[in-house]
Amino acid sequence: MSEVPENLKYTREHEWVRLEDDGTVTVGITDHAQQALGELVYVELPEADTELGGGDACAVVESVKAASDVYAPLAGTVSAINEALEGEPDLVNNSPYDDGWLLRLFPSDAAALDEMLDAEMYQQFLAESED
């Protein structure tokens, strides 16, 4: 079973989102997603200041056998990226919700957060896709 922290929001594309105190949101991929991909060997991130539309492909997580797009969970401007991933992509495997975060956004409409899945809904979504 994969870990699904209570305090985060989730998407059906297996991204998590956390609203920070400064109004930005942090984005990563879920424990379930990193397990499905296997050991990551590379993470491609956008450049800071890139403007993203909701659902835009904004990063790529790559394992030996697969490469998956990460989609912007909401529209906004990239304010920071996790530069540590360049040398240590396995941070995403070892710490998907913490050290393995991917990027931060200034959301253009933070209200979109409310439409995302909460932990319970995401867990239910995972259980349904198991079948």
Binding site: V41, S63, V64, K65, A66, A67
Partner: peptide, 12 residues
């Protein structure tokens, strides 16, 4: 670096 290639990334 095979994940860049067509048999994995297909249209991308």
């Amino acid at each position: 670096l095979q994940a860049r290639e067509q048999h994995i990334r297909r249209s991308k």
